[in-house]
Design a protein around this nucleic acid. Sequence first.
DNA 1: TCCGTATGAATGAACG
DNA 2: CGTTCATTCATACGGA
Lengths: 239, 239
Amino acid sequence: MEGEVTSSSAGGSIPAGPRWNPTKEQISMLENWYKQGIRTPTADQIQQITARLQAYGHIEGKNVFYWFQNHKARQRQKQKQESLAFFTRCFHKHPNSPPVFPPPPPPNGWYIYASVSFIVLGSISGAHIIQHKANSGSILPTTQRCFSKVASRRNQNQIHQWRCYKVQTANNNGRQETLSLFPLGPTGVLQTRASSSSSPTSLVSTSAVIPTADLSSSSSGINGDHRQPYFDFFSGTGY
Amino acid sequence: MEGEVTSSSAGGSIPAGPRWNPTKEQISMLENWYKQGIRTPTADQIQQITARLQAYGHIEGKNVFYWFQNHKARQRQKQKQESLAFFTRCFHKHPNSPPVFPPPPPPNGWYIYASVSFIVLGSISGAHIIQHKANSGSILPTTQRCFSKVASRRNQNQIHQWRCYKVQTANNNGRQETLSLFPLGPTGVLQTRASSSSSPTSLVSTSAVIPTADLSSSSSGINGDHRQPYFDFFSGTGY
DNA sequence: TCCGTATGAATGAACG
DNA sequence: CGTTCATTCATACGGA
């Protein structure tokens, strides 16, 4: 009853076009709207948009719906990858390339390199915090990272969030203190609905946030010229 | 402490079965039940259903639960889109195709083109009413339709409903009286539970209804060629 | 012609 | 219950 979509079989009259194939103009306009901040258009918006796009070729509401759905999701996932790659790079000893972070001027204490990720155009997602123990003059790739996925209690395996742990290195006993979750607030860019993102326990402001722009840009030119600043949450200084 | 749940740390992985992948038979049977009128099965029903479906493959109660939830929701949403599209189309100036409604032979007054939509397979949804100002001309089915979008207060921009206003025509001054909301009743097809849809004040019969069939068909085939100018219901302008 | 990637479509699973 | 997210399936497309 429902899956008429593929009705290939007998007909032959192509009841339902195989699949929408957006024209250049349509994509262009869609991206435009997306840039304007539209993420999950309401039924009306979908109609409006659909109507406008029909001027450039056949298109239905569902196409618009799916487009935004997919675009947002993929944007998000791309972002995730980028930031992940970013961090990976940060804490990876690249044989040939210099560390992303400047050779930390570390005395002896904890340094926290924090960077926000997933600031997906106005909606929060989360932040990552990575920690490193400074040892002597340089960062140890012997990372003391501390990521830990945390499944929300509600249902079996719900959404995960990253929890950061403080990890002792050198002279410690392996004890770890939990650092609070570190979520972000919306960037406010055309953000209509304040991102729901459950209010976390202790919320660290986004003050020290490294804007998405930097992250994303870093993705392409990461290695070259970009120097990502870091921010020390404790001392309140960065560089 | 808590993150352990999903990650079975030690041994194998298989944190949580990937996700239920319904077999053809299961889907078929579920759709069948759905067609029988089942929408939100009770705990018992879910068990019964689950039990039966287990004969065709692994399945849990929650799967059944989710299935109905999703199916119903998507059915409804699809319907919404279609009808919305329908109306949008109605008031679109089709370059090549005649308007759905007879060429508004507008005199000067308000014309109301009313049509019910969402008769979704036995469940109500609402009615649409569209409004047009007549300028000069002849008539239309004496009807004076008038549309007015009504966004439910619940959430910012949730579902909208159309409110119908009684509109004077010919010898009127353009005055309008509000007509009560115009919801529909279930078509009665295997309808188990009278559609919840808030009990409206005065219920107008579906007499003038345009069958769902028409609506859906319109989505793909209504206009041979596609090219539809956009119409802004609010500003009253299109392009 | 085969393959990898981009992306349209669908849908299970949840969230608020 | 409506909305949103994460995955997955399927197909269009471009390069080799």
